[in-house]
Structures are given as structure tokens and as C-alpha cells.
Nucleic acid binder design. Sequence first.
DNA 1: CTTAGTGCAAAAGTTTTGCAGCGAT
DNA 2: ATCGCTGCAAAACTTTTGCACTAAG
Lengths: 133, 133
Amino acid sequence: MATLKYSRQRESIKEFLVGRTDHPTADFVYENMKQIYPNISLGTVYRNLSLLADLGEIQKLSSFGGADRFDARTTPHCHFMCTRCGRVMDVFSEHIDRSLEDIAADFKDGQISDYKARFFGICNDCLSKEDTH
Amino acid sequence: MATLKYSRQRESIKEFLVGRTDHPTADFVYENMKQIYPNISLGTVYRNLSLLADLGEIQKLSSFGGADRFDARTTPHCHFMCTRCGRVMDVFSEHIDRSLEDIAADFKDGQISDYKARFFGICNDCLSKEDTH
DNA sequence: CTTAGTGCAAAAGTTTTGCAGCGAT
DNA sequence: ATCGCTGCAAAACTTTTGCACTAAG
């Protein structure tokens, strides 16, 4: 087991993610980190995102089609992706948690320990733009 | 709109997927197609898988970590992935469909039209191997 | 001093695409 | 004859990794 050492890059990446409600990709995090650390490398961003995910401090969302996205919310929740603008939003619901537990209990071919649910559709912003036609 | 033309490659790819209950990657389909068409290209496999998915004849599963997987089942269902051996299995349940309507009704930031749920855990095969220790 | 973390660059893995020729209609 | 599909290869895109060096403990 490697002993964890402090790194200012990792702290900034975590802090950046906590301050956002969208769900940035690694490359987007990288572009923003360059404003603080002009020489930071994309590899460092990936390594830290991966490390933070392993520690359970952030969540890796694989995936909504393209690059993976990252989410600093630790409370269990689901995600909604707008198929028009690509935005990813949080979805909180007791319905899903209850029914997913029912499914886990019903499943006979293995032992379910985790689940992820994603929803697709059109977000309100895109719907209102559509109305103007 | 392009008019669809018959292609024996596409037909074989579809047929191959229909005959399987696992959820092969594009590369796995490619390797198997080479036994029928030794000169088939990976690009052709990707193009046909993408086309079949657009037609709704197959489903593209993005993703379970690595490469996308493909599924010829058209009836709505969810997926379970064994985190030990990587196998992906189908999950059928009425629970999920019932709760989807509830969630869609609750969600205020957009209009939900589709969902995908994935479950993670250990499959029975891997559990029984574990017992022998 | 020890070793985890970093920047850089190359590589690996997955998917898309430009193009010239082939094949279905 | 038209134009969608193919094989091939190159490119694009995302993520990982080897290495020498820096910095935290």
C-alpha cells in the first residue's frame, strides 16, 4: 500500500470539481488547471482523477458517449444527459433507489453490490429554444 | 436520407449478435467476422454496428469501462457486469419500468425519454470459485 | 533519505474518416 | 448509371505509462 502524499495539484483538482455542478471531462479539468499551474500535464490530471475516484472522494462517470466525466458529489444519485446539448445534470429520487434495490434482490445470476442509472432526454433550456420555431 | 442497400457483411454482423447472449465488443465481432470474410475491415464492422444501432436493430452499450459492447436484444432490459471477470449479463425486471415513470414525473429540469441502468457485482461463477479458498 | 508525485512524451486502445474501387438497385 | 458499402490506411480522440526529476514526509 502506497502512503499518500500531499500534492497541491491534487488538492486543486478536487477543489475545482467540488465547486461545479456540471460534470467536467478530464480535458476540461486540465484546461482549467493550466490557469493555476501552467506546466501541469494531462497525465497528472488523469492520475489524480483516478486516484481521487479510488479514494471515493469523487465519482467517475463512464460514460455518456465520449470522454469520461467526473463528479464530486458523494451522496448517491443518478444522472440525466440532454441528448441535444450534451449537458449532464444530477437526478435525485427515492423511487430509483427503492426499485433498484428490488431489482438487486430479484437477480439470481450473481450478487449485485452497486448500480448506476442514467436518464436521457431534452433539458429545459433546449426545450424552450425549440418553442421559438 | 440515404437509401439503405443490402450488404452481406451487415447481415452477418446482425446474425452473429442475435446468436449471442454475451455482449461482444466491436473488436470481438471483427475477429469472428474474419472467419467468414477474411478481408473484412474493422472500419466496416464499426460502421455497420453504428448503422444497426441507429436503425434500432441492436443496442450500443456505452460503457462498462473499456470498449463499447453491443446487444441484439431489442426488448427493454438492463445489464449486470461482473467486476471480477468482466462478463455482462441481461437483467429483466418490472420494477425498473414502473419506477421510471415516477422519476420522469419528478424530474423538473427536462423531459426524460429514455433510461439505462447498469448493475455491478460478482457473478455466480466467480462466487463459487471464491468458495473453494 | 526515501518514495510518491510531476512534467514530458511516447504509446496504447478505441473509434472515426478520407478515398478509390466494388457491388446493390 | 447511380450511389451506398467496402477495404485499407491514416487520423482523431481518450487514457495510460515509462522515465528522469522534484518535492513531501
